[in-house]
Amino acid sequence: MHTKRNNIALFSFFLFLVFVARAGADTATTQADGTFDVPQVFSIAFYTDSNVLYSTGIPFSGMDSTKTWVYADGRNEGDGKSDTGCVCSSNLGVTWYLKIHAEATPPFSLDKIFYYFGQPWNRTLGAPADGQLARSANWYNLPGSPTVIYIAGNGDKINTPDGTLCTFSFAINPSQLAANRLYNCRIVYTLTTSA
């Protein structure tokens, strides 16, 4: 009888151990150590689609010299398109500036070429960018030295993954330009953290 009681106790103890072991198996832990590197993004890249027609080359072919205002090939007044588009991307969390300037090859001169720049578009948010135009949206002569045209807003400071889209249109006054020669002008867009 004493042995039977011991056997029962022992069996119960083993049962207890089984239950405890199973209870231990239900509570599992994991441990992971790691570091997270977020790469710096600060870039300007061309953007094209059906409404943004050009990028590295902007053609003005066979301009009518009896006119004083000519658009790029394929462009018309009020067509809703742009000549070039630049996507400015940043995750620096600081204010950035978009600048523009041009260098004309003589006899072409900067007083012959004009640009139009309106409020940019925050592609990540799907809304107008919240930064500030340096001048109101209008036609201006291209400057000969880097000139701020847009100051990033709070929503632009970290605008990844899709960036802020800035679009441009250009026009030329062909009067007093000779026929049958090629005129060149280089336009530079600069994304910078310096005002």
Partner: peptide
């Protein structure tokens, strides 16, 4: 980035 205007 840079664009080049070519005009005739």
């Amino acid at each position: 980035q840079q664009s080049t205007v070519n005009a005739t």
